[in-house]
Simulated assay, not measured.
Amino acid sequence: MTAFPLWAERLYNTPVALAQHKNDALCEFAEMRISGKSSLPERIGVGSLEGVQMRAMSDEASFYNEDGRKPFQFKGSIAVIPMRGTLVHRADWMDAESGLCGYNRLLKQFRAARDDRDIKGIFVPTNSGGGECAGMFAAAEEIAAMAKAEGGKPIYVYLDEQACSAAYVLASAGDKVLGRRECIGGSIAALMNMIDKSKAYEKVGLEPHVVRASWADRKAIGTGGEKFDAELLTKMGSLVEEISEQIVEFVAAMRHVPVKALKSLRGEVFSGRDLLKYGLIDDIVSEQEAWAMLEEEIDQAA
């Protein structure tokens, strides 16, 4: 049997906030790799699972001006902080090249834009199916605290393609959430992927034995090919339920949508018109129009 590689530890046996299409794609890749029944290359390019297009005004942003380099892209007085790829707790610039977007890197750019006197607003082009729950709430709460609604600079999130699950949690922290008619978003809940490998062990004639302290009989239960029992599944279900409640409560507070209404969406993904109908975005506009709206708000505040 093949042990889970490090990248799989982010996908299995821990709560994640991913849209179904994103979760299915990642799990399919993972299962083929773990089972060895695939001719995939050694390195999975997660970024290939999602488009990374940036269009219109944000595409003209640069890190540089006559004074040197900033820690974020910008155009005029607007910082551009893309939220693209699979969201993870921590990632560096090399991970970003593989399609991972670290909450730590996002916050570093947001903080720099907040503290930059030349920057009057923040534009966030978004294309992410979600990611890890670890670090998600801390990032979303800090971004919300930087928004104009809390006395900061206006933050406009633009759904260039998608903002699902963890990505939507962060998007909801902005002052405005806008998108194209064909954009998708929502999937407001967490989930957990688990694989019971006991039948695979049995099939190849292996009987797992995990030695535990006499008083720690539930430690790492279900590991090493042990069969999952009802108590384990109930406990993991309770954990997912708790995190999902926190997600719904946060989005409800940010978007001023009742918790009951959000739960009635049942974790589904929606496209532009329905996102607008359910109060998950503020308007359906092009990226140029969204940019112009932010510029107008900045001008009015000057």
Rank of each mutant, 00 (worst) to 15 (best):
G131I: 10
Y103N: 01
V257R: 05
K277G: 10
G152K: 04
V257N: 05
R105T: 08
R10L: 14
E132F: 04
P41C: 06
I281Y: 06
H89V: 12
G267L: 07
W7E: 07
V88D: 06
G185L: 06
S38T: 15
D95P: 00
K197C: 10
S48D: 14
S98G: 00
L265I: 03
E142S: 02
W291I: 12
I281S: 01
V211G: 00
T126M: 05
S128C: 03
C164R: 14
L276D: 00
M57R: 09
V251E: 04
L49F: 09
E226G: 13
G68Q: 07
P15Q: 03
I81L: 03
L239T: 07
G186A: 01
F270Y: 07
A25F: 13
Q73H: 13
F250A: 08
Q246S: 13
M136R: 06
V248H: 01
G224V: 07
E245Y: 13
G179P: 10
A147N: 11
K219Y: 11
Y158C: 00
V88G: 04
Y156A: 05
A261C: 09
E50W: 14
E226F: 14
E249L: 04
G152A: 02
S58R: 06
D160N: 13
R111W: 08
V285Y: 03
R90L: 09
A144P: 01
N13I: 09
I81W: 05
G51L: 11
R111C: 06
D217S: 15
R114A: 13
K203H: 05
L191F: 00
Q20V: 14
A163P: 00
L232D: 04
L170D: 00
I78N: 01
K148G: 13
L100F: 15
M1D: 01
M83P: 08
A8M: 10
V240D: 01
A113M: 10
A144R: 10
D282L: 11
P125W: 08
A112V: 02
A138K: 15
I81K: 01
E66N: 12
G85N: 01
F72V: 08
V46I: 15
S48C: 15
A166F: 11
E9I: 03
Q20T: 15
I298L: 09
A147I: 08
E97L: 15
P154T: 12
G272Q: 00
R114M: 09
R43W: 12
A147T: 13
E132N: 11
L262D: 05
R255I: 04
G152N: 05
A252T: 07
K148Q: 12
S128Q: 02
K37P: 08
A61P: 10
A19P: 04
L26V: 01
P71C: 05
G76W: 01
E295K: 11
